[in-house]
């Protein structure tokens, strides 16, 4: 479904990805793990088009992605829930959700999708008319994920959905994502710091280090692999 080969990308000439090969099958859930600064976010941005690739190729359903503008990629079904939530703070929760269904296929299914996301994240149901900026961190993250789900994604990319959240709030997010995956068949990429939670909801995982793929394995294998902890903290646990 998504095929990346030999991808190099970076900011202001500083490389963040060095020759990354990466693929996601139809309906597959993939975790990207690795220490901060390893290039995980850059990889997602290169896929959604907000960071330009220096070389290499990305194709989605056998069509070249790199030649397409970011909004065309969303139309194709690639939906990115960015790090730091990026809620439209001055707009209501309902308007945020409505912007989520900006993709043309999703526009007609707005009401149906809204019912779905409110089922996944019941906490949002009572605050549709509140401004996004007035929500707590956890609620904002729910809204960010919900906004992505509104677009009927074919490939949903979640960047650090638990970042900066208290453990309880992070648990709520992961429970919601798990509920979503029960009903949806969308493919998914999760970038996540909390390795256990990410591996729990994914089939397979990549570990990035210094912009290169250091490890690739099934979730089960990785959960038992001490090298993962070493990659993060450099110490044996």
């Amino acid at each position: 479904m998504l095929e990346i080969s030999d991808l190099c990308a970076g900011y202001d000439g500083v490389p963040a990805l060095r020759s990354v090969d990466f693929r996601v099958g139809r309906g597959e859930r993939v975790a990207i793990l690795g220490p901060n600064g390893a290039g995980k976010t850059t990889l997602l941005k290169a896929i959604s088009g907000t960071v330009a690739a220096d070389s290499g190729s990305i194709s989605f359903e056998d069509r070249d992605l790199l030649s397409q503008a970011p909004h065309r990629r969303v139309e194709a079904g690639i939906v990115h829930v960015p790090q730091g939530r990026m809620i439209f703070a001055s707009m209501t929760v309902a308007d945020n959700l409505r912007l989520g269904s900006h993709r043309s296929i999703a526009r007609d299914r707005h009401d149906e999708r809204r019912d779905l996301v409110l089922e996944i994240f019941p906490a949002l149901a009572g605050m549709l008319n509140r401004d996004g900026g007035a929500l707590s961190g956890g609620q904002q993250q729910m809204l960010a994920v919900a906004r992505g789900v509104m677009a009927c994604p074919r490939l949903l990319m979640l960047d650090e959905p638990s970042m900066g959240l208290a453990p309880r709030a992070a648990d709520d997010i992961f429970e919601g994502i798990a509920r979503l995956l029960e009903s949806e068949t969308t493919a998914m990429i999760v970038v996540e710091q909390r390795a256990h939670e990410a591996l729990h909801i994914c089939d397979r995982a990549f570990v990035l280090e210094s912009g290169e793929v250091a490890l690739e394995a099934t979730s089960r294998e990785l959960l038992a692999d001490e090298r993962l902890a070493a990659a993060y903290l450099g110490a044996e646990i």
Partner: peptide
């Protein structure tokens, strides 16, 4: 309106608006 909301979204955070599929 959809276009109006898209304009507000782009003015608040163009990157997030891009992720919504808005043509900046």
């Amino acid at each position: 309106t959809g276009t109006g909301r898209a304009i507000r979204a782009a003015s608040e955070n163009w990157e997030a608006a891009t992720y919504m599929g808005i043509d900046i």
